[in-house]
Design a protein around this nucleic acid. Sequence first.
DNA 1: CGTGAAAGCGAAGCGCT
DNA 2: AGCGCTTCGCTTTCACG
Lengths: 151, 151
Amino acid sequence: MDQTDTRILRALQRESNRPVADLAAELGLSASACHRRIKALEGAGIIKGYSARLSRRKLGFNILVFVEITLRSQERSVLEGFEAAVRASPDILECHLTSGQADYTLRVAARDMDDYDRIHRDCLAALPDVSAMHTTFALRPIKFWQGYPVR
Amino acid sequence: MDQTDTRILRALQRESNRPVADLAAELGLSASACHRRIKALEGAGIIKGYSARLSRRKLGFNILVFVEITLRSQERSVLEGFEAAVRASPDILECHLTSGQADYTLRVAARDMDDYDRIHRDCLAALPDVSAMHTTFALRPIKFWQGYPVR
DNA sequence: CGTGAAAGCGAAGCGCT
DNA sequence: AGCGCTTCGCTTTCACG
């Protein structure tokens, strides 16, 4: 992981479909050397994979919500049951065990308020052992995922 | 945007570097038809681009924090100043204007606690017109970004 | 919109420095 | 590690149903 690797990572997390030869030229490297470095980064698991970035709005997901959830207890079996339910729900985009008042922080996308209501009733409130739920609506994105600040 | 398009999107947000011919075969389609649909989705801006997914831990970002920030006022000029500063900071991965007590919700990555301290002092506390800051540490990821539940 | 075939280009492998 | 070359496969385009 030297300077060249970090430059490759910065470039690929911005735009991964660009020809390796282009990127190599930009870094003053031959295509084959650059290609070998990329394969090494993939092999090391630093590059986990490649994804298409989709437009949330164009897909019709007009609502983005952060949900903080507190459980009835912190017992191992309770946490495990909750986490399994979270993993099974396609409406929950992301979930982290967190510090602070609440136990978990979730990220949820919905098409509109009716859709959010459905998710709230059928998915969130139906999660096992929830004792409190605090929701924060994202009104306007200021800055969106631009990747990690690899140095 | 029919059933076939949604299946293409689901596949590409999971793994975008796989051969179009493979994907086409899976959907019972020819490579060229599939390719044409992908280009149309790109043209429509539904596919915004392609990115490498990097491993946060392998990059040495051991800390992930959600920061809720309240500003001294809601005046337009104050918001704009704050937002410009946010966009300029590489340490702030993401930022949304949100409902609720706080005004903004940020996502921040740090290498370790010393690094987070640096970010806290030099980046977050240095943001203009901040009146309150509430931080939540992500202790353990339960579910990570798996893309939107395209139907 | 779909298919199949043809062409053009980039990725992947190799021998060498 | 890096370079250039060659090969092979995939992407991309075209003519057509």
